[in-house]
């Protein structure tokens, strides 16, 4: 049961998109997002679609998604039905998925790779970043904490995602602009183009 993105735009009222990294998928994140507590939080927050980019971990996703769908059928909440779908890779980036979240006022849940963070934030969507705590000598945790401190994103815990999912509801109001504004009167930082100009003597 795949989420059909081509026609999905109309019927998707609120989407949650999960990206786990292409080369080495963050398996614990797949398990965590399909855990009953996360599913319940998503339903309470009114999500209608959960879309997971699972990379090489197809088997794990299929197993967990099956269990989650079954329990959704057995214990239907009064809220809208939550559709669960997934795909492995997308050759032309995740633009379509980010846009889907953007126009449905949803949320992106991502592993803490800097590439994914930068890509998702360009779409001005609430982003929950989940560092992989099993990686040693990794800077993911530092980056996620620093970004969360500046209100660019929310930091999620892989052991329990529900609080972050609920927090994302109100996060949009206090979310900081990314990338920071580099010109005009709300200027916060220098732009790299400005630094290049400075170095070669191009002065306005």
């Amino acid at each position: 049961m795949e989420v059909n993105l081509a026609t999905g735009g109309k019927s998707i009222a609120k989407a949650c998109f999960v990206t786990t990294g292409a080369t080495a998928p963050f398996e614990a994140l797949i398990e965590s997002v399909l855990h009953p507590s996360s599913i319940e939080a998503l339903q309470n927050a009114g999500y209608t679609h959960l879309l997971v980019q699972y990379g090489a971990a197809k088997k794990l996703f299929d197993d967990r998604a099956k269990i989650a769908r079954q329990s959704l059928l057995e214990h239907p909440l009064k809220t809208e039905h939550l559709e669960i779908g997934g795909f492995d890779f997308s050759l032309d980036g995740l633009k379509e998925q980010f846009q889907l979240v953007q126009c449905s006022n949803g949320v992106v849940i991502s592993h803490a790779g800097s590439g994914s963070i930068l890509a998702a934030l360009r779409y001005q969507v609430p982003l929950i970043v989940v560092p992989n705590t099993l990686l040693l000598d990794n800077h993911q945790d530092e980056l996620a904490n620093a970004m969360a401190k500046s209100n660019y994103l929310l930091r999620g815990d892989v052991k329990n995602l529900a609080p972050a999912i609920l927090e994302a509801e109100n996060f949009k109001q206090k979310m900081a602009q990314f990338p920071p504004i580099t010109s005009g009167k709300h200027r916060e930082t220098k732009s790299f183009a400005g630094i290049m100009d400075e170095m070669l003597g191009f002065v306005e």
Binding site: L118, T189, F192, I195, M199
Partner: peptide, 24 residues
């Protein structure tokens, strides 16, 4: 000639790192 860092904690590393905020 110029060494730019994007996080405040790295400012002044080796007496040279310039903190410019997030540039990417």
């Amino acid at each position: 000639d110029r060494f730019l860092v994007q996080w405040e904690e790295l400012e002044g590393k080796a007496g040279r790192a310039e903190y410019c905020g997030i540039l990417v």
